[in-house]
Each structure stands twice: as C-alpha cells, then as structure tokens.
C-alpha cells in the first residue's frame, strides 16, 4: 500500500499544466510547452498521465451536469463538506476509533439531531413512544421528536423541542399542565390534545375537551374539542381538520380524507431515514384512506398501486415519487 514514486518528467508535466493555465493566450509559454511536449515520447506519456488524473469520475460528473446543470457544484460541495482523513494513520489504529466515532456522528445526524439527544425524552426515526409522567399524565411522542420536562410545585411544563406530541392530562388543581413550543404555550383545560413544532410555527389540535393557547401578545384563546390552530409567535389562526390535526399517529396510522398526497408524505417523513422526494404534480394528487406508519415501504407500495404515481427507490436512502 506504499505510494509510488513520481518521476521527474511527470513532475514537469504537472508544472506545465499549472503554468499554462495561468498564461494568457498566445503567450510564448505555449510554444515552449509545445517544444517540451514534442521533444520526447515520454513527455507525451507523462502529459497524458497527468491529464488523466480523476478523468473517469470527472467524465461521469460532466455527463450528469449536461443532463441536469448544477451537479458538478453539488458534488464539489459534498466532497468539501467531509473532514479529511489519512488512511495510513487509520491503519496505525489510534485514529481508527476516533474516525469511526466521527463517521457515525455524521450519519446519526439526520436520524436523530444531536441537540435532541440531550432532551429529557426523545424518539428517533420511525420510533414512537409513550411515557407516563410523574403526575400520571400520559405523553406520546411521534417519531423524530424531543421534549424537556420541567415539573415543579407550581406548574407542569413540557417543552416541545422538536416534532410532535400528544398528551392525556391528569387534572391537578393549582398546578397547570403547559406545553411550550418556540412560538407559544398551550395550557391544558381538559384531557387530550396534540402539539406539533414545525419550522417557524406550531400547531395545536384538541382531541378532547379544550386548551388555552397563548402566543405573542395576543389574548389567550380557548381552543375547543375538534378545533386546531396554527400559531407563529405573533398571531394564531384556525385551521381546517386534516391528517395533521387528527393525531392518528398516536395509534400508529395516518388518516387521510381527500387530502393532497404531499401532506401524507410529510407525515411519513419522520418514519424514514432516507430522503423522500415528491414531485409537485404528484404532491397535488388527492388521497383518501388510512395508512400504517410503521411500514412506510408497504404504504408507498399500496399508494403506487392505487394512484397514478411511480415510486422509485435507490436503496434505503432516496425515494422519489412522481406522476406516471
């Protein structure tokens, strides 16, 4: 595995390549190079060798670039994002475990964001969990969710850091039960409701009895059973019932009533480790039905059998959905 020595002519060829590139057109350097190249067949061989560096993968990337511009820049960014390693040091053993550690941290990131590992309760991709809290309340966490629990003598505070939860609150006079998101607070008045932290806003849906919603400086708003509100820290607005407000996930399924496929796919995302892409045309197709969350493979298959869509998978890491 030791590296091959590089001969003088090859070094010269590298120098020429780097120099020529900087020389303006018609520069005398060009003719000097032509002389060098013609002087000896070994020069030509060396020149070819230097120009062939990385040629095969580059040609593949250029092909992809021609069909879809932007691929080369994307490949470049992907390669530059990775930390550098030295194989020889790895062989030495000392660095091996460190490298393995780094590698797994990088991979784990999509599946479980690192911050959330520090949360009091959390779930990973495809994982749904139910907890009984100290006060007897039942807390369910959807996949890829995280909460911190701050219970004290005056209140029971659950901070939703990511994802989605549903609670069945045990009433306790004088100690309110509050779910806080980045955009506001939901105080339980009765038994069952769900809260979801999205990017930039939150959603509360009440499945039983009612809650008090506080967001920004607005007056507290009472949300009744069957209602749902989206809030962004300034204001809140009522949203129509949908698969998001039904909280079917708590029972391991998603209930869709004539809603866009795109919404259903959103609900499946936390249950798949890879990337799920859906084309805008496919996302608009209306869907009706109840789908299991724990076997997304089967759900996608049954969708492709009943809807005018095609589902392509590249291993477990990229799935694409498009209209036929």
């Amino acid at each position: 595995m030791s590296r091959l020595p590089i001969d003088r002519v090859t070094r010269e060829a590298i120098d020429w390549l780097l120099k020529l590139e900087r020389a303006p057109a018609g520069s005398p350097m060009q003719s000097a190079f032509d002389c060098w190249l013609r002087r000896c067949p070994t020069h030509q061989l060396a020149w070819q060798r230097v120009n062939a560096v990385m040629a095969a993968p580059l040609a593949d990337l250029q092909q992809a670039e021609q069909r879809t511009p932007g691929q080369l820049a994307l490949a470049s960014r992907s390669l530059r994002e990775l930390p550098t390693t030295s194989r020889r040091k790895v062989l030495g053993g000392g660095l091996a475990m460190l490298l393995v550690g780094l590698g797994s941290a990088g991979i784990a990131h999509r599946r479980t964001p690192l911050d959330d590992l520090l949360a009091d309760l959390h779930t990973g991709t495809g994982e749904r969990r139910a907890f009984t809290l100290a006060d007897g309340s039942r807390l369910r966490l959807n996949a890829r969710s995280a909460v911190d629990l701050r219970f004290n003598a005056s209140q029971r505070l659950v901070v939703l850091r990511a994802g989605e939860l549903q609670v069945d609150v045990t009433p306790e006079p004088g100690r309110p039960f509050i779910v806080a998101t980045a955009q506001g607070q939901v105080q339980a008045l009765g038994t069952r409701f769900s809260v979801r932290q999205d990017e930039g806003d939150s959603l509360v849906a009440v499945q039983q009895h009612s809650v008090l919603l506080i967001t920004g400086n607005a007056a507290a708003l009472r949300v009744e059973e069957g209602q749902a509100f989206r809030f962004d820290g300034l204001r809140s607005e009522a949203v129509a019932p949908s698969l998001r407000t039904r909280a079917g996930w708590a029972e391991g399924r998603v209930d869709v009533r004539d809603e866009p496929l795109g919404e259903l796919i959103e609900a499946l995302r936390p249950y798949r480790a890879g990337l799920l892409r859906v084309s805008p045309q496919a996302a608009r197709i209306r869907v009706y039905g109840s789908f299991p969350l724990d076997d997304t493979e089967r759900t996608l298959l049954s969708l492709s059998e009943t809807l005018p869509i095609r589902v392509d998978s590249l291993g477990s890491w990229l799935t694409r959905i498009d209209v036929i």
């Binding site: 992907s78 994002e81 490298l99 590698g103």
Partner: peptide, 14 residues
C-alpha cells in the same frame, strides 16, 4: 463510515 458520511453529505445537498 466514510462512504456513508459522503453519501449523507450528497443527500443533504440533493
């Protein structure tokens, strides 16, 4: 692990 990290980086970019 290296290869997976690279694929992950590419995936994020995609």
């Amino acid at each position: 692990f290296r290869r997976r990290a690279l694929e992950q980086a590419y995936l994020e970019e995609l």
